[in-house]
């Protein structure tokens, strides 16, 4: 697997180069992404902005290895994983090890309590049940929802549920965190708290956070903003 050349003092955790993605062919062809290139470095929190249908979610899905690009290169944590074809056969394991997902609606499993929602990811990665639960409680305590560890998601407030979801995303210490509208279901106060938390995590764990958002109340929390329009990058924004 190709190794990236260092840029300055750091290697980008995410480097997408010339990524294009189209759906359909001929008259029905839709270009969702056209020659998009982005880089996200450790500790950075970046936003993908743009109107509906601009390609934000498509780009997030490509970076999350759940959608095949039509062409381009994708490097994650220094590993070239896509070069006009996937270079890794086990994308599930790649996601489990390197990527944490945070959803618009927390997407916690409703039949598991907060602690087990987090522990599940650890167990999927091979941890035994006991150590997974211990680590899950540590994470919940770190995110200040340890007191709700035995609560089912239906008993949690929106902010609490989103923190548990963040704990789940962080369980395997991924270096890349992809967030799809992470504050859409929260009020402005809780949205600010969640974003501050993501910034803190990015800084402390040397991770990269890429968030799709429409929420202008939290724009000031991003280090960098990529604007997409009709599948193309619309120049670089700033924090």
């Amino acid at each position: 697997m190709a190794k990236l050349e260092q840029v300055g003092s750091a290697v980008p955790l995410v480097r997408a180069s010339g990524i294009s993605k189209h759906f359909g062919e001929g008259d029905t062809r839709v270009d969702a992404l056209v020659n998009v290139s982005i880089e996200v470095f450790p500790g950075q929190v970046v936003a993908l902005l743009g109107p509906s249908g601009s390609g934000k979610s498509t780009l997030l899905n490509v970076i999350g290895c759940i959608l095949d690009p039509s062409e381009g290169k994708l490097e994650l944590d220094g590993d070239l994983v896509y070069d006009n074809r996937w270079l890794r056969s086990d994308l599930r394991r790649l996601r489990l090890d390197k990527i944490g997902f945070i959803f618009q609606f927390h997407n916690l499993l409703p039949f598991l309590d907060a602690k087990d929602n987090v522990a599940l990811v650890l167990q999927l990665a091979g941890a035994d049940s006991r150590s997974a639960r211990v680590r899950a409680v540590e994470l919940l305590d770190y995110l200040e929802v340890g007191n709700r560890k035995d609560s089912l998601p239906s008993k949690l407030s929106g902010g609490e549920a989103q923190r548990v979801a963040i704990a789940r995303a962080l369980a395997n210490k991924p270096r890349i965190i992809l967030a799809d509208e992470p504050t859409a279901a929260l009020d402005s106060v809780r949205a600010g708290i969640v974003m501050d938390l993501l910034r803190k995590l990015a800084a402390e764990q040397d991770a990269a956070v890429i968030a799709v958002t429409h929420d202008d109340k939290i724009f000031d929390r991003f280090d960098h903003m990529y604007h997409l329009r009709d599948g193309r990058l619309d120049g670089n924004g700033g924090a």
């Binding site: 489990l96 090890d97 499993l109 999927l124």
Partner: peptide, 16 residues
């Protein structure tokens, strides 16, 4: 289905 999609996304193998 949504829960299954989430499980897949967070890395659950098909056998699970």
């Amino acid at each position: 289905l949504k829960q299954i999609a989430t499980l897949k996304l967070i890395g659950a193998p098909d056998r699970t």
